[in-house]
Structure formats: structure tokens, C-alpha cells
Design a binder for these strands. Structure first.
Length: 384
RNA sequence: UCCGCAGUGGCGCAGCGGUAGCGCAACUCCCUGUUAAGGAGUGGGUCGUAGGUUCGAAUCCUACCUGCGGAG
């Protein structure tokens, strides 16, 4: 992998760049659609390409469980397996430490909402999630499929990701919950940092040099820890960075966290923001210096019946859309907007037809990719 | 014409003496490295009509209306 910076903004940390991989070139800043199980839900790979998506991210934990990395390896790697010829990332399974652990226990996401209600609850040092066990070597999960115990640590994650053969892979980390207290996060950060070293070592020994390994910065919403983590991860020999973990309880905090982190990272390496990507977050995130970011929102919300448009989100399940004989977005030129109307998509949703999800997923990805393209244009023109 | 069954929120039903619930639909909100075609909440009924019995009736009785089934 090679990263070339084409232009740096004079007014912010935004930059235009190219990430070159053996499966093609990505123009950054860039949205990374989520293909957890080796598929962007409801679309096939040809359709995803038609949404102008440049790179996808799949998941180590999910593909390890089903179908297992050996199957993917024998099929010729994930690109071939899913018939996706463009670049791919795999996430390390570190997010599942959170989502299947404390995230599940407390019913929270990585961006904390309604902080007042949950203020009393704190995850303290030495506490463990109910369903998984975290220790210095890694994490013991329970398979959501059959309840089997399964252990994933840095070495295991690397081994799985190498067999999956994505172009960019991530170090195994512990994504902490936003309710974690300072002492918990300190301990978790020590683990994540130790694991980062182990991942680098495991990956270099295996000789799979075609894959770029990115290290992940953690530290929750604590300034000292974010600074410490970004400096530490930068000191290691990663080819790029992921910024993960909880990102505070509001947009301002998210920006602060990026401001504490990004200045400490080598500017010649790409920076990926893990799991963030509401439309309203994008410009801020890019101005903070993020090159790529993945987010389930365009695809996930599509399956809730929601379309993103230039006039905001609309919920096509609402009865009123049965009477709207117009495209999802008047300015969008995607295949769905050129060929289908709100009334039909609304009808499909109400009839429980899966094609509704496909049309909405396709449009949302086009809309998000267009949105980022416009931000790239703004950087090019020197506007941000 | 007779006999039987049924009429309860938009729809489908439960309740069968102490002044109404459920599912679906509707509407609102939530989802940010996918446990996710998921979750939370709100509104809406003078219980076919008219009488009667009773302290009290959606619940018992009578008549009528409407629908379904059967007989002739």
C-alpha cells in the first residue's frame, strides 16, 4: 500500500490523497461502506461498485464464525470469494469486544446518548462484561451461533485477517465503552498497546507484506490517554492508523478527541476513523484530518426504511409517501432515483418486500458517496 | 319463512355481571469499526340499535337491524 497526499488544506487539517493498493486506487477522503459478512447487505458486488463505493470493510469476527477463514482462503481470498475486485479492509474483531461485551450489557453505543440517565453507571477497573471475558492475552467470546467458546487475541486476529487477504487490516484492540471510568480505560489501553506490538510482530513474521497493517488509537474521551495512545501507536511501525473507541457524548467532544489525537500521528500515513459517518459529522471529521471512515448508517438505515436526501432523512414507511410520485431525491441521479419513485418504494416496504431494502441501500450509498465527493471538491477548490 | 352462529378502536380477535384489553395498522422517537428487515413509546372504542333485569351490563332477557351458515 502507498499513500500519496495530493493537497493539504490551508485552513484545516483536511487533505486530498490517494491510497494505492494492489486492487486499485482510493481517492481520499473516502467513505468505507460496511460489508461485515462479506456482503453489503441486500446488494451484490456489481451493484456496490455502481454506487461508486471505492473500498469496503468486512469483519474478522463474523467471517471467522461463518464460514471460517479457511473456506475464504481456499476460495482464493475474500476479494475472489465475494467477487469484489476493488480494495478491501477487515476490521480486527476489536469492536465486538465492546458490542458483544459492555455495549450489550448496558445497551449503549460508542457515542453515548442521554448521558444524564446513565451518569450513575460506570464501568470500573477489573469489571468484566457478562458474556465475554477480557484478559491480557485476548478475549474469550461466546459464539452467537452455537454458544461455543472462542478465543481471539492479537495473534489469532492477525492469522484470520491474513487468510482473508484484505488489502488493509487492523490491529486487534479493545474498543472501550463510553461508561468506562479512567482506571478501566487505562488498563484497557495498556492491553491495546501491548496487543498492537504483538500484531505487528505476528504480521511481519508471517511475511504477508502485501497487506497494510493499521494500528488503532484508543483512550476513550480522556485527553491524556488519547494523547498517550496516539504517540505510542505512532511510535510503532504501522502503515496507517485507525482511531477507535468511544468518541464522547456530543459532536464537540468528538472533535476534541480528534484534535488530541491526529496532530500526534505521522501525517504521511493514512488515518481511518472507525465507525463514524453521519452526514452531519463528515465535514468536521475530514477537516480534523481523517482520510477514510466506515459507517453502517447508509446501509443500516436503509433497512429501517430511511432514505437520505438533500432535504434530510425521510422514512418511506410513512403512509404519506404512498402518494408521492417523485424520486427519493430531486437532485440525485443514481439508478434508483432515475427509475423508481417514493410511492413504489413505500409500497414495497409496507408489503415486506426485500427489494425495498435493496433500492434504499443503493440510493443511500450513492448519496453518501456523492456527499464525500463534494467535500473532496471543496478541498480541491480550497474552500475547507 | 324457520333454525343456528356472529356483530367490541382502521382490520383481525379476547373478555361473558363490577364501567374494556391483545395483535396488526397509524403516528412519534432511537439506531455511528452491524448480535440488527431491530427496539422504545403514543394516540384511538358511549362494546350493532332500542328497551328491560340488576346496586351495577360488552357480559343476562326481549325486539329489531346487519352479516354468515343450514333447513325449506
Amino acid at each position: 500500500m502507498q499513500f500519496k497526499i495530493l493537497k493539504k488544506s490551508k485552513s484545516s487539517r483536511a487533505r486530498l490523497g490517494l491510497i494505492e493498493t494492489s486492487h486499485g486506487v482510493i481517492e481520499t477522503p473516502c467513505l468505507v461502506p460496511v460489508a461485515t459478512q462479506g456482503v453489503v447487505k441486500t446488494l451484490d458486488s456489481k451493484e456496490v461498485e455502481e454506487t461508486k463505493s471505492q473500498i469496503l470493510i468486512s469483519n474478522t469476527f463474523h467471517l471467522h464464525l461463518k464460514p471460517g477463514e479457511k473456506i475464504v482462503e481456499k476460495a482464493g481470498g475474500l476479494h475472489k470469494f465475494m467477487n469484489w475486485r476493488k480494495p478491501l479492509m477487515t476490521d480486527s474483531g476489536g469492536f465486538q469486544v465492546f458490542s458483544l461485551g459492555f455495549g450489550k450489557d448496558y445497551g449503549v453505543g460508542k457515542v453515548l446518548k442521554f448521558f444524564p440517565g446513565k451518569e450513575g453507571e460506570q464501568i470500573r477497573e477489573d469489571s468484566q462484561p457478562q458474556n465475554i471475558k477480557i484478559d491480557g492475552n485476548g478475549v474469550t467470546f461466546r459464539s452467537p451461533i452455537n454458544g461455543d467458546e472462542l478465543f481471539i487475541g492479537p495473534k489469532e486476529s492477525m492469522k484470520i485477517q491474513e487468510k482473508l487477504e484484505a488489502d488493509i487490516i487492523f490491529a486487534f484492540d479493545e474498543c472501550t465503552a463510553p461508561l468506562s471510568d479512567l482506571n478501566y480505560v487505562k488498563r484497557a489501553l495498556e492491553r491495546t498497546h501491548r496487543w498492537a506490538g504483538m500484531c505487528l510482530k505476528a504480521h511481519s513474521v508471517s511475511g504477508k507484506t502485501r497487506q497494510a497493517l493499521f494500528g488503532i488509537v484508543q483512550g476513550s474521551h480522556f485527553k491524556d490517554l488519547r494523547e498517550q495512545s496516539s504517540k505510542f501507536i505512532d511510535s510503532l511501525d504501522f502503515e496507517g492508523y485507525g482511531i477507535g473507541g468511544d468518541l464522547g457524548s456530543n459532536k464537540k467532544m468528538m472533535q476534541n478527541i480528534l484534535d488530541w489525537t491526529i496532530p500526534n500521528l505521522n501525517e504521511r500515513k493514512p488515518r481511518h476513523l472507525l465507525g463514524i459517518g453521519y452526514l452531519e459529522d463528515m465535514e468536521m471529521v475530514i477537516k480534523s484530518g481523517i482520510d477514510t471512515f466506515d459507517c453502517t448508517v447508509p446501509t443500516h438505515y436503509a433497512r429501517r426504511g430511511i432514505a437520505f436526501t438533500s432535504e434530510g432523512k425521510i422514512n418511506l414507511k410513512q403512509k404519506k409517501f404512498l402518494k408521492k410520485d417523485e424520486s427519493l431525491d430531486k437532485d440525485c441521479t443514481c439508478y434508483v432515483c432515475m427509475n423508481y419513485k417514493k410511492n413504489y418504494i413505500s409500497h414495497l416496504l409496507k408489503a415486506g418486500e426485500i427489494t425495498a431494502f435493496k433500492l434504499l441501500t443503493f440510493h443511500n450509498l450513492c448519496f453518501f458517496n456523492d456527499f464525500v465527493e463534494k467535500i473532496r471538491q471543496k478541498i480541491k477548490r480550497g474552500e475547507i
